[in-house]
């Protein structure tokens, strides 16, 4: 296998005394879809935030295309411009319309022209079924619609790596299918994704690798057919029994 897009080694993150991530190792190859599963509080969101350099890690390294991004000399903005992130709580900007939310980063961080940025945002929003809400403010949208708008906002910058935190949590089954289709399509186009999810069926369908986090450690990882169907670890088995 060639150089992975993302390589995490011995990642550690603590909030005060509380160790949230402890020696996490993770490889993500280009085009791969990695699903993080694990109980609530196991550190999935924290891991994603560390990958995006939103939280400073306490030890270990993260490399993006062979370059260590946890090096303090690296400008975190240059890293974040290559990653898209969708938060568990959406975090759309309430004072901007959906379209403005989606064009802010392309225009102000990536120096894309207004016309081009808007055209791309409109196209994506339409594909995600938000065509008629383009000029609405986020508070006029339902939870699921906000979720999709947040995904579009992350996609508008054409990220090399997309980090998604529970993107399907607020969606009805039909929309889950739709978003899933879009994510698969994105994966096929070579967008690499790391996503945290509680939906095992979703992970089974879309993941190329499933990572089971338990108490801040990677307990088991591998293809979904192995981790989700025939897990090696006792803890994974217990977790799956509880959620399935």
């Amino acid at each position: 296998m060639s150089e992975p897009l993302l390589r995490v080694r011995g990642l550690r993150k603590a909030y005060g005394e509380r160790v949230v991530l402890d020696g996490v190792d993770l490889d993500v190859a280009t085009g791969e879809v990695v699903c993080l599963i694990g109980a609530s509080g196991s550190g999935k969101s924290t891991l994603l935030r560390c990958l995006n350099l939103l939280d400073q890690v306490d030890d270990g390294t993260i490399e993006l295309e062979g370059r260590e991004i946890t090096d303090p000399k690296v400008d975190p903005r240059s890293v974040r411009r290559r990653m898209g992130m969708v938060f568990q709580a959406y975090n759309l900007f309430p004072h901007l319309t959906v379209l403005q939310n989606c064009t802010l980063a392309p225009r102000r961080a990536h120096r894309v022209g207004r016309r081009e940025a808007e055209a791309r945002a409109r196209e994506l929003l339409t594909r995600f079924g938000l065509g008629e809400h383009v000029d609405a403010h986020p508070d006029r949208l339902s939870g699921g619609q906000q979720q999709r708008a947040a995904v579009v906002r992350a996609l508008c910058t054409r990220p090399t790596l997309l980090l998604l935190d529970e993107v399907t949590a607020a969606l009805d089954p039909e929309l889950v299918g739709e978003v899933l289709g879009i994510l698969r399509e994105l994966a096929a186009q070579g967008t690499t994704m790391v996503l945290a999810t509680h939906e095992i069926s979703f992970a089974r369908d879309v993941a190329s690798t499933v990572v089971f986090l338990d108490d801040g450690r990677v307990c088991e990882q591998g293809p979904p057919a192995q981790v989700l169907v025939d897990p090696v670890q006792e803890r994974t088995r217990a977790f799956l029994k509880r959620v399935l």
């Binding site: 011995g10 270990g60 108490d215 801040g216």
Partner: peptide, 14 residues
């Protein structure tokens, strides 16, 4: 969490 031995930062972290 179950951190039995005391953690010491790695060379790299230092």
């Amino acid at each position: 969490m179950s951190d039995t031995q005391v953690w010491t930062p790695s060379e790299h972290e230092l």
